[in-house]
Computed example of a mutant assay.
Amino acid sequence: MLDKVMIALKSIGKNKNRNFLTMLGIIIGITSVICILAIGDGFTKVETKGLQDHNTKNRVTLSFTPSSDDDTTSGFTRNDLSVLEGITGVDHVKLTSVNPEASVTVQHQAKKSSAGLNKVPKKLKLSEGFGTTLNTNDTSDIFISKDLADKVFKGKALNKRLVINDNVFVVSGIYKIGDFSYRPDIYVSKTTFKQLFASQISQDEAKIYVKSSASKKRVSKSALNEMKKFGEDAKLGKYGVSHVDQITKSFTKTLNNITYFVAFVAGISLLIAGIGVMNVMYITVSERRKEIGIRRAFGATSGDIRNQFLIESIILCVIGGLIGIALGYSLVSIINHFLPFKAVVTAYAIVMSLSVSTAVGLIFGFIPSNKAAKSSLVGLLKEE
């Protein structure tokens, strides 16, 4: 076997330029697949990270969906909280909102618009203005997005007044929203949010933390039954159990399927490369008919001839695949300097690329190799 590999490498080395051009299609195809899979895996990792929570292992999430789309106040109440905390096996319960931002109406002079509003994070990078956050005492200062500033103020919004739900505020900072991130258009201080806007947000999610000794499944079933019976807003909507782990897996699977489909489309170039490999192997077989005849005369079987050319075809494609992987890895390192997330080259992508390269060499090299194996000794000697 080693002798056949060495003969194949020697044969490939004799026609370096021709074989490199043949490998070029493999190199481009594998490089494309590596880059697409790396970007897809990196994006999937970033997006699913936001869905994951270190506390989900011992947590059940109960959700409330109002019957009417216009209902923005129904959900879980303080009485509901007491009922849930009284269930056997529950450690504590926290009421939250799926969408923890208020929908408000903003106005500057005669121009009105709608926007999302939330309390300011601990640190926020501003493109205009000073500071990184708003103090609790800053009840009149706000930060707004560059998009809202362009929409309402035509860009020049710093230190100007903005009316939000009939309350006057002053724009003290402007921030930009990235392409791969989400932020509301307005940030206010935590005190202002609590005093003026928190009441507009319904508590439509109950995070139930389960004791380590209790069954998560049993607690979730009991909580759902209790809310259906005693929930104050039970007649205004429906309660349901949200399985975060299942949502994360489903979301990850969808993103991976999209990535694999795009990679498959990019990998179509390998089909064209395979045709090039078949063509060059036909030429190689034609050029080496004398060698085939001599080997057959010295006792080489049809299987030996077939395997020799098949190994040569596979090695040609594997070398192209290895170069494509190296080039793809280098290209991903360059791309990472321009992406808002880190593209990741996984072991799966490398193994798949090598497998595809080997398969291309095996499939498209079989017919020329089989032709060489079936060449009759008499016909080969007559040619000489």
Rank of each mutant, 00 (worst) to 15 (best):
L9G: 10
I350T: 07
N165Y: 12
L196P: 13
K125M: 06
A372N: 03
N17G: 11
V280Y: 00
Y260H: 12
A38D: 11
R218Y: 08
D3F: 08
Q246M: 14
L381K: 12
S199A: 08
S269E: 02
S140I: 10
T22E: 02
S376N: 13
T72C: 05
N159K: 13
N257W: 06
I311W: 14
S63Q: 15
I12S: 00
E291Y: 00
A234H: 15
L331Q: 14
G328W: 04
T65C: 10
G129V: 00
A38S: 14
A266R: 08
V33Y: 03
L224V: 04
I12F: 00
N256S: 14
G237T: 03
V265L: 01
D245W: 13
N17V: 11
I12Y: 02
E383S: 00
I283K: 13
K156N: 15
S369Y: 04
S302R: 14
M23L: 05
I164S: 09
H243S: 14
G75Y: 07
E47K: 09
G293R: 15
D69P: 09
Y329D: 08
K216W: 03
I367M: 04
K94I: 00
S212V: 14
G328S: 01
V345C: 11
K94D: 06
G237P: 09
V46E: 14
D150R: 14
Y329A: 11
T284I: 12
S330P: 10
I142F: 02
Y209H: 01
I367N: 04
T96F: 02
I177F: 11
K342V: 08
Y348E: 08
I283E: 13
I28K: 06
D3R: 12
I26L: 09
L270V: 04
F364S: 11
L24G: 05
V104S: 04
I144P: 04
T31R: 02
H54I: 12
S114I: 14
S97Q: 02
G361I: 03
G131Q: 00
H92M: 01
M227Q: 00
V106D: 05
